[in-house]
Amino acid sequence: MANERVATVGAVDVSAVAELVPKKEYFNNWRFYLYCILISLSYGACMLYQRAFAISKGIDYTSQDFQTYWMTLFWGITIMNVIIWGLTWGWIWFVYRDRHLEQLSPGEELKRWYSNWLLTLGVYAWCLVWAVFFVEQDGVWHSSMIRDTEFTPSHIFNFYLSWPIFINFGVAGLMLTRTRLPVMGKKWLLPLVMEVAWPIMFIPLIGENEWGHSAWILEEWFAAPLHWTFVPFAWAAVWFLGNGFDMFPRIAAVLKATYFGEKCMSAAEAMENPEEATNPVHTLPGM
């Protein structure tokens, strides 16, 4: 068995080995680094805008400058968010979806694990990093400035840009896994769902936060109990870890099937029984 390659490809007649084994270059992590760099460049531009106009034009909501430089931006960003959400999620759910998941070959599945699951969630993580960066900018802003409205310059890039963007990639990762990978074809992995769902709570909690600030806490005390409601949702990182550890055995199984000729559960079987498809024993050679 060790020298033989067994691939379960459903009803499709596969004759060429080349189609079953993805090219090594496909797993070039440079693609991921490139995405991260592109995202960083666009956020870097936002940062420069903030450095240029936050203090000079953004400390008084009632001023004309604020309306020109910041509220225009806020509305632009908000409309952009809705469009991005609609396009990304709509495209994944209705267009990009694989309607014949049960016919997936291990080689193709491995590629999808890499692109649709790992790298999409990687980009999600990178957007989280940037979101937290802007949270920190908000911290320095409020430590130094008099609390204006909830549309203060640091909030515009924090609450209304970086958070919706990471939510976009999180939901995209969840949808891609659901529509493109057999294990999630019929059931949902709880840690993956939670890892995406929990941080979404940051957005509704803006309401709680700003309400509290409008009522009493005007000065900045970063560790104020008012901010603690965000904390449990930061623990979503543990769900992320769970998702990684839980899915990894299936990746190992399709990798072994693709390169080592080992047997693995077919896509159709994995759809029916994801618990068994992600059993950690699959990470061991020959199992």
Binding site: K57, I59, D60, Y61, T62, S63, Q64, D65, F66, M145, I146, R147, D148, T149
Partner: peptide, 13 residues
Amino acid sequence: SSHLYASGIGERA
């Protein structure tokens, strides 16, 4: 007029 409408430092909130 821009001088007249000079920004405050957040107190108007």
